[in-house]
Design a protein around this nucleic acid. Sequence first.
DNA 1: GAAACACGTAACATTTACTGTTGCGTGTTT
DNA 2: AAACACGCAACAGTAAATGTTACGTGTTTC
Lengths: 134, 134
Amino acid sequence: MKRNSRLSLALHTLSHMAVDPSKTRTSADIAGHAGTNPVVVRRVLGRLREAGLLTSEKGHAGGWRLARLPDQITLADVYLALDERLVASDESSDAAACSVEHALHTRVSGVLKEVEQSLVDRLAETLISEIRGA
Amino acid sequence: MKRNSRLSLALHTLSHMAVDPSKTRTSADIAGHAGTNPVVVRRVLGRLREAGLLTSEKGHAGGWRLARLPDQITLADVYLALDERLVASDESSDAAACSVEHALHTRVSGVLKEVEQSLVDRLAETLISEIRGA
DNA sequence: GAAACACGTAACATTTACTGTTGCGTGTTT
DNA sequence: AAACACGCAACAGTAAATGTTACGTGTTTC
């Protein structure tokens, strides 16, 4: 797989699950569809579980299922669960020699945060259930 | 520096230049302010030059300058010039065994492209000259 | 024309993040 | 007890970005 494939894998899996939310899917099944490894699947879906989007069960008939209905999960939920960020927060100890430099640095960071928030707002407008739709 | 610092470096440099657009700055100066290496600066600013945002001159009094006024450069110009993308386009040969899988894959990609376009639209609303402002 | 200067670029090492893989433990169902 | 499936640690492999050095090219200055 390529870089930054976690969001892609997560959305693919969730929208696939949205077709039949009652069905339980194993990591191996999902990995087969996504062309990757079961452990990788568990790593990514584990984050979604921590965020309350999925549940997992051990044992004979275990596997993964949606913790909410697919029309109650937005792309923002997924994005934030994966802790992806547009740019590194660059908290480089802020030891700017000049105060003007420091102020500028603060402003750039502020602008980027505003943009990031706009992105999250946009992601919150799309539901998992809408991916299949059209 | 940290990962994904190109956008941060570019915005920092451009907004710094916006204070006095007539002044020429060397890679070494910029690298000093940004806490990095002159060659790294040239690599990043080189992309901005290709996109028509900056000009560079060799020689004794050479260096970098804005190619446009700071109120005629948007964050989208910078973002696109650096060729950064929200997610990898994941063109993994599309050899999905099942046609349903293929359709789903296409839909996920489409949704991500729409989100990316929304991000660019948002970035286009902010000018370099606005970074210092407030 | 020689020297100083600054970018352009190649080449390589280093760093970092992610992915791929194996192995083993834990819990559940049959 | 056996089969199953997740949880997790550990490690190798891979890919991208960054840091660094070296050298070429073009421009200005003397």
